[in-house]
Design a protein around this nucleic acid. Structure first.
Lengths: 170, 170
DNA sequence: TTGGAATGTCAACAACACTGACGTATGTTG
DNA sequence: CAACATACGTCAGTGTTGTTGACATTCCAA
């Protein structure tokens, strides 16, 4: 249903920012920005035998060392077969170490090796550089708004995962 | 390369929002939010024989009726072979009409049929609903910041494409 | 008019997601 | 202990979406 009406006197505020045209611009901004967001790591990875899926795995293993396969599955939102293909190559290539759990031996705990950490640094440096530049250009207030809107765009499960990681980090 | 220094008295402002931790949270917010952003259309499309690429093509053909294949190529940032496969199925299924250019017969001008417009409505209604909800929860100031940061995250080419579309819309 | 550039199409292949089925080791519970 | 559940890995098959390479058509300019 289209929402193209004029600014209604809804609680005294203008709702012009909720017109279909504004929403469409938001959608398109999201589309183009995500391309920029992944462009630099993608470029680096294209030279190796890795892709975006490897980057995501490496990122979250670095973020939560010792995480289990199941936990990673929930964060990434893919099937175990899909993740397993990626993890297998990363383990074979010596970027990720998989250790049998001590308390629960069914679990595998995942860690980056030094080699893995090196690649993680390379990738996240590139991605952070762009994010830093965008943040700096936009300023702290814009950044706060950026994060508020993104968080409101997530499903509740993702919000939980995101918040948990945020608190883990500090 | 890390930028982990304490808030410097840079022009009197705190630069705490540019710490690595803040940047990483921005990166993760982007990752999770994009999943939410595409979730609803993806769900709808999974029942048909279409995917996200079809959605993107339909979106931009709707946005700029009569656009050429080449123009669409630049906006979407994929190879023409990749786009062609998508366009072929859309044309076969009667969602998109391809007309040989009158001035330049090499060009094909693309239009949505009524059937195509119907699907476009269904998809964009779903996507807009989530965006509207997120925008409403976040408020107009946050939305402005959101768009500022996203724009700063794009490559200059994308910024141009984005701005051109924005002006086209109104 | 001829050669090169632009536009679009066809074919083959790679990356990465999915479903479904199965095996193994381990933990938990009646 | 037996039965069931959980965590992980794997094999096989399929679909979408990206890639390169080769090629036909059309336009334009030397």
């Amino acid at each position: 249903m289209s929402d193209m009406r004029a600014p209604s006197p809804y609680s005294g505020e203008s709702l012009l920012f909720l017109t279909d045209e504004q929403l469409r611009q938001g959608i398109e901004a999201m589309f183009f920005a995500y391309r920029g967001f992944t462009a630099d790591p993608d470029r680096i990875l294209s030279d190796m035998a890795y892709g975006r899926a490897h980057h995501r795995a490496i990122h979250f293993i670095n973020r939560a060392p010792g995480t289990t396969v199941n936990n990673l599955l929930n964060i990434l939102g893919v099937t175990k077969q899909s993740l397993n293909r990626v993890l297998r190559t990363l383990i074979e290539d010596g970027l990720v170490q998989s250790l049998v759990g001590k308390v629960d031996k069914r679990e595998r705990h995942l860690y980056l090796t030094d080699k893995g950490k090196t690649l993680e640094q390379t990738l996240s440096d590139a991605q952070r550089a762009r994010m830093r530049s965008a943040f700096r250009d936009a300023g702290p207030d814009a950044v706060a708004g950026f994060r508020t809107v993104l968080e409101a765009m997530m499903d509740t499960e993702m919000q939980r995962a995101y918040t948990r990681l945020k608190e883990t980090g500090q």
